[in-house]
Design a protein around this nucleic acid. Sequence first.
RNA 1: CGGGGUGUAGCGUAGCCCGGUUAUCGCGCCACGUUUGGGACGUGGAGGCCGCAGGUUCGAAUCCUGCCACCCCGACCA
Length: 492
Amino acid sequence: MSKKLTSRAEDYSKWYNELVVKADLAENSAVRGCMVIKPYGYAIWEKMQAELDRMFKETGHQNAYFPLFVPKSLFEAEEKNAEGFAKECAVVTHYRLQNDPDRPGKLRVDPEAKLEEELVVRPTSEAIIWNTFKGWVQSYRDLPLLINQWANVVRWEMRTRLFLRTAEFLWQEGHTAHETKAEALSEAQLMNNVYATFVEKFMAIPVIKGLKTESERFAGADDTYCIEALMQDGKALQAGTSHFLGQNFAKAFDVKFTSKEGKQDYVWATSWGVSTRLMGALIMTHSDDHGLVLPPNLAPNQVVIVPIYKTEEQFEEVSKIANLIISDLRAKNISVKYDNRTTYRPGAKFAQHELQGVPLRIAIGPKDIENGTVELARRDTLTKEVVSLDLLTGIVEGLMTEIQDTLYKKAFDFRATHTTEVNTFDEFKETLEKTGGFISAHWDGTTETENKIKDITKATIRCIPENSVEEEGVCVFSGKPSTRRVLFAKAY
RNA sequence: CGGGGUGUAGCGUAGCCCGGUUAUCGCGCCACGUUUGGGACGUGGAGGCCGCAGGUUCGAAUCCUGCCACCCCGACCA
């Protein structure tokens, strides 16, 4: 393994791939298109899960678990949803293997063990969940039904990339049922806001909240809300989606309730999800040519202490101080790792922790012991300072929020300088090529125009931003009248 | 699934055209010693069915055929 990471300028996607592997986040597996998430990468995902799970419960949701397999007949019940996912479904057709008479010691699929009905490996769980909800809902008293599940799903992708697109991935999917359209709509918006808050406050990634156009909408949804983030290469990444499903699934699965007035009505539904793709967003938003950069909120180790010593006595002295620091920091809920491995020298440790994005590094050596100081190195700014041991805990505590804020600001500024308003198609193409990023432009509202722009430029409408203002204008492509700007970008 | 490319030690590679000793080099790994404030150095060592299966030949990493895997570019997607 070479020591240097490919730089972003040299080859952005190579940089990404190398970073994921070298920072020990994940690796490709023996299964085509499927990744192994390694302990360090999984620890970051667990941090995301913990915070999201807390936020879901705070907004009244409960966790449950539904089967991995969906009988084909259930899967196809909501036609639009089924059609949307049909091309990427893995299907179980048999339930048994047997010894292969032609190849001793090998197995083959038992032709006698064909399933009467094929099972679809869930690409998403609406079908099985709505089939179940049918039995859970009879009265308005059973509503709202607010369920979330943490699960894996499978979408048979042709081209895969670690975290960004894999055949199997981990996610959470919320599924809710409501009495009224208004209530379901506000649930879909609420959860999109939860995602936005989580991604901005916890992951330090600024996002645009908005609505998807018809062609980018979730199969089976009436409306899809989303949060869109901008990566350092100028491409957009959908970080989360929340769907207003109308009564589509209720009708397909016959989920009715009796209202206060004694009338039968179909329930109104939402679903919403974020996945391990957020790991990709995290990496591509903050990291640099030295490796991963983690916001303190997501770092498995917020602080690492590296001892510097020549003799065994010095090592012991340094360790004594390190242990004092550790207990002080842990008392403040700051996670610390003492890297006291004797098998690596300090330089190698510095490089490794930098590659793995540890927000703050403390080095303690003989000079520090003499002076009552330590050396502090920030991962986000790559700056070093020597601070007094007495003040350390307070300084570290302050730096945790400061680093978190600095990362957000930096990403916010990047997005600001990579968001351009354009009024002509020439400007559109030029901006896309030169600066990339988000392009704010008028659009006539037709799928036809959207598709033509996509064919010519590869850019798609990421969303109709929630906060966009009413403004008279003409479509950047067709010249037809338009009342608001939408956000275009090339996307992951 | 279309077009292009690549498979040699854990990783990156030389050798292949033009077949011929024991398959090259670097990183990593192991042992010992010296080292330790930004990826240490020396000495010694281990590690290979040259992607797989056939074929040609006295002889195949090298030539031929088939298969498999991976990568890049397109269409599809969170």
